[in-house]
Simulated assay, not measured.
Amino acid sequence: MLPFSNMPYGPAPAWCFPLTEACMYIITAICVWHAYRKGIGHISWLLGGLCFGLLLEYINVYTSSGYFYGRFTIMLGTAPRNIPFCIGCGWAVIIYSSRLFSDRLGLPLWAAAALDSLLALNIDLSMDVVAYRLHMWHWDWVSRGLPGNALSGQWFGVPYGNFYGWLLVVFFYSLFGRLLERVSGKAAWKAVFPLLSVLLSQIALYISLFPLAALLKSLWGITSLHRLIFILLMLMVFVCAGFRRRQPVAAVPWPLAAWIVPVWFHVYFLCWLFLGGFSGENNLMTTAAVLNAAIGLLIHLPPLFRKPGITFLTDRR
């Protein structure tokens, strides 16, 4: 018996979900330890990402925004509109590790927030297609009247709007958080600003995903794909412009928390692409998954091999 009639894949192996959940908690613990050693600003940033992730997932599932989750060990809420706690942890560590990377580049505020978003999207592109086929979460194409889209619709069964949302979630949280940090350097304020960032981000996200999206579609027929392409290009422009204005940053050791998160996501879900038998479904999907994982690994692993004392930046002359 298939979990969903329009999906040709049966349930994941019994050990798949517990293994995924355990790994997620391990890398969360690594990030928590790193944040604890760095101080209150890092701790609050990580916890803010956790709260934001859980909040937005709960709202999306509760309002029946087109998807629901499989059964993990620790679930929050009431079935069937409940969410796995490890998903909130996933949001937290992705946001946290992305900032650890972008902070090493000395980028201005808008460019740093844009880069955080693009790094998070790179991880999501490796994860969603595979996790969806493992039934970790499910997009309900049937209720949309498009059962044929289960595997081939939009991005191999994943709605374009999902990626648009990923970019906005990370961008708003990173942008507002960095802006609020500039108001005061006091420790007490550092503990509060992520909560304010969550509130501002949730408001901006709601406006972008609902009234603004509906207005753009009704007036000019702009779809989720058009919005995704636009925001992608905009963020890339921010990053490119930011590299021209970057500031030298002192060389520091490349922490485990900065690279273990993207490396685990890319390697873990790439392995499941083949172990789950999904790689034979669509050659284009498999090629895109491998290339995306390779890009992520090429971005995050080279700093591990840099000699101590060599700056990560080339100073401007």
Rank of each mutant, 00 (worst) to 15 (best):
I95D: 04
A113F: 07
G296R: 00
M75C: 02
V249N: 04
H266M: 04
L200C: 12
D128R: 02
A111R: 09
R133W: 00
G153I: 01
G148A: 08
F269W: 12
R81M: 15
S143H: 05
V252F: 09
A188T: 08
C89Y: 05
L256M: 15
A288I: 08
I40T: 09
I59L: 05
F210S: 10
S224F: 12
I26F: 09
T314V: 12
H135I: 06
A79D: 12
L216I: 13
D128N: 05
G296L: 00
P18N: 03
W272R: 00
P253A: 01
M136S: 12
E181F: 06
G90K: 01
L196Q: 06
Y58I: 04
M285A: 05
A288K: 01
L105Q: 06
G161R: 12
Y173G: 00
L200N: 06
G145E: 01
S102M: 07
A14W: 15
I231M: 08
E57S: 07
T287V: 10
N6I: 15
G148I: 03
N149D: 11
P303C: 04
S102I: 07
L291S: 01
H34E: 10
L46N: 02
T287C: 11
L298E: 09
L55I: 10
S98T: 11
L275I: 07
R133P: 00
Y206K: 05
H266F: 03
A214Y: 08
R99L: 11
L270K: 00
T28C: 15
P253I: 00
F171K: 01
R178F: 06
L225Q: 05
P262I: 00
Y132R: 11
A12S: 07
G41R: 05
I40W: 14
L301V: 08
N149P: 06
R144C: 10
L46F: 05
L273R: 01
C271S: 14
A113R: 03
S143Y: 04
F171S: 02
L301W: 03
L107C: 03
L212K: 05
C51F: 11
